[in-house]
Structure formats: C-alpha cells, structure tokens
Design a protein around this nucleic acid. Sequence first.
DNA 1: TAGTGGTCTAGACCACTCC
DNA 2: GAGTGGTCTAGACCACTAA
Lengths: 241, 241
Amino acid sequence: MNHSNEDHIPLYRRVEQHILDDINQGRLVPGDLIPSEPKLAKQLNVSQGTVKKALDNLVNEKRLYRHQGKGTYVSTINFNNSLFRFFSYGDASGHGVRIRKQVIERRLKIGTKHICQQLDYPPESELLYIKRGGYIHDQQILIEHSWWCPELVPGLEKEEIHIPDLMYAMVVETFGVPVVRSEETLTADIANQQTAKALGIKENSPVVVLIRHTYSRNNKMIEYRKTIGRADKFSYKAEIR
Amino acid sequence: MNHSNEDHIPLYRRVEQHILDDINQGRLVPGDLIPSEPKLAKQLNVSQGTVKKALDNLVNEKRLYRHQGKGTYVSTINFNNSLFRFFSYGDASGHGVRIRKQVIERRLKIGTKHICQQLDYPPESELLYIKRGGYIHDQQILIEHSWWCPELVPGLEKEEIHIPDLMYAMVVETFGVPVVRSEETLTADIANQQTAKALGIKENSPVVVLIRHTYSRNNKMIEYRKTIGRADKFSYKAEIR
DNA sequence: TAGTGGTCTAGACCACTCC
DNA sequence: GAGTGGTCTAGACCACTAA
C-alpha cells in the first residue's frame, strides 16, 4: 500500500514540459515553427490526442499560437499587454489613441549604483542611456528613462540608428538579441520640478511610475526602464469574478 | 457554392453557451452543482468528449470548478483577485500581510449626483454609506467609502449587524443578494487634507485610488466603492510575454 | 459499489494552406 | 494532393467521493 501516486505526472504535462524546455533553453525562439502533431506524437511515443491537449494548454497560456493549415509557432512577446497601454485610454470614448515617442537624449552614461546592480554590472559602470518623451496630439504625457547593457546593443548611442516607438523589434533584428519577457511594476508618486515641467503639470501633481525589467534568453536582463506618466491620463480597468 | 460556413458554431461552444445562459439568467448561482458530463451529453445530444471540452474551457475561464468524484460547480466570485491585494505586499519580503478593516461611519446619507446615477437612483436619493479604515499593524494605509442600494441590505446601517473585513459573503448570507462580479478601475491622485490626516501622511502625498462597481445578477449594480490608499504601500506587478 | 471527473487512445471527417 | 490544425465521437481505464 501507499505505493500511491508519487510521480504520476500526466503524459500531456511531459509534452508541455518538453516544449517549454526547448523554449527556455533557446533551442526554440519566438517565431519558430515547432513539429506537427503527428511528428511530436511519434517522437514522444504518445497519441496525437495527448499532443493536442498539451499544445492546447500552451496556446491558452499564450506560449504558442497555431494557424490551421500552416503549423504551430512559438509566441512572440507582445508589448500590447504592457500596463503601459492604460495610459490615456478612455480619453474621448474610443480606444486606439497612439502614443508617439521622441528621443530626447541618448548616450553612454555612468549608471547609478541601483541600476548597475539591476543589470548585473559593477557599480560605476558605463551603460547606454536613452531618454524619450511620449506624446498624444503633441501633448506630452510620459517620460521614459531606459538603461541598456551597452555591449549587447553596440552603437545604439549613435544617432544613425533610428529608434522606432516600439524599439524591441529593432533590437531583435539589428543586434540579434531575442527579447523573451518583461516584468513590470506599477506604483504612484508625485512629480518633482523637472518632471512637472516636462509633462506640463504643476509640481507635486500625481504621476504613475512604471518600472520594467526586460529579459533575453537564460534570464539575462537587458534593459531597465522607468516610465513616468501623468496620473490623470492613466486608468487601469480589471474585472473580478 | 458559397454555402460556406455562415453559422458553423462548434458544438462545444453551444454547450458553453448553454451553461453560461443558465448562469447569467440566474437559473444557476455561484456554488451550484451542475449536471454531470454524461447527463449533459444526453440532454444536449452530443458526446461526452464534447461536453468535457466545453467544461474544460469554462474551468479555464474560472466560470466553473470541478472536484473529482463530486461534480462540477459554478464559481464563486473571488475577491482575492482584486487589485486591492497589491497594497502593502512586498513590505518585508513576504506575502500574506493581512489588512484589518474598521468601521468609522455607517448611516443612511444622501448620495452625490454622480453616485446616485451610478447606482441607478434619482438624484438626492438616500443611500447606505459605510466608511472604513484599512490597517496593517495598527498603521492606517487605506480609507474606503462604500455606497449601497439601501433596500437590498435593509438594516445594515444598524450597529447590531457585524461587518466583517470581507463583507460580501455576509451580504450574500444575511440579505440573500448574490454577488456575481465586480469591475475595478485604478488611478492615482494626491491626498487632500482630510485624507492625509487619516493616513498619517503629508498633504499632497501620492495616493492610489481604486473604484469598484459590484454587481448582482442581471447586471444590477449593488455597491459603489472608492478606496484611497497610500501610494508608498502599493505596487502592482505583472509579467509580459 | 455507483457515480463523478481525469487521462489516454484511435480514428473519422472537415477546413485551411501551400505547391 | 499532401500536410496541417479543428471538431467530434466512442470507449477503455484510473482516481476520488460518498453512501
């Protein structure tokens, strides 16, 4: 007795894990086509139904996506899921208000102790610093401070390289650094004099602060970003059930 | 030709819809046991596998939950999913810091025009108002203003009725009003003099504002709540993939 | 022991994509 | 036409619950 169910991991879980291992260890990167259901079933010696269940679960978790007639692909990170998108929605009833970004400053710069530590550099290291403003209808609502590991994006401090509003795709293509996931933390604060001036609000007005840590494969952090936005342009909605 | 696929709704979608209809129209309420897989399959004239797929989907959406050997139940709303829980976590490394609530004021009170409108009452209506503080280790970090439809919770203004920290379960049991879902909106602001005094912070310090609309069946709104908390005790984390 | 959900298989048929 | 995923069925066997 009590031989019980120590290690009864369902087969479909093992299939999921097999795929996730390939993703986490970089054998599969975002955008890759994975083997078809029949091939996986044969490889792993399970039925196609079991493979289907595993893939369905990973699709539900947004780790994969499927196209009928084409195949199953590894998901690409989607920054539309950022908390960022809750700035200035609900403005004039509709959605889809686009935030335009503009570079204000870009150069190599000594990072603070805290930021160097976050990016796993020794204190006083030189990092790549990019400062941008975010605008809606020419009104600034955001300030963004972004710090990158300089040797991963060599030359990005030069003006010749165009920085698009969503810069991650550019980083992937230009420098071959896969962007795998981000963590965001949202808090609130009040505007200091400098921030207030940039955002066109009174000093001590409320602002929303969004800290983002962005990672490449193997949990290597590649960017530390702090975005400060006007609180009156931010509202985050959620449903509870 | 072009008889195409106008109305090819998959069978499992229809099964999902059948269950959801029962829930939305109050024939099934939170906590209810629904028919077993074989019974549903026979009722709806589909295979058990199709029923299983439909129920799996609804479980994924947290509309149902299942217990092996017992059956499938309609989910009860879970306020642990509230944005509220991001107050004062990350304090001292660990989770599980409980927020104690204390009633400061409870009485019938004329609501503002805005609140009367939200609760679908004529202006100048008398509503039930409850004001509470939220405390961690005897330090106040929250103020909560709660407005209820008075005829749904008759007598709740009297002190004889104890108000627990999580008051929704009490409302369901005492007044038989099912609480079905809530919508929350998060923004930031600065503390006015009164709020600052209560929270023990300086006037104009940053605060986080959480507005909650709570609904009973048939989309009947039963509570409007505004919670104001110290921003330095709030941080909301999310992952992007 | 009967009834429930959980896992796994085998196979049919369809819709979509690409060559 | 070959290959992919999407839907649906039928049935075996197991694990858990309750009486």
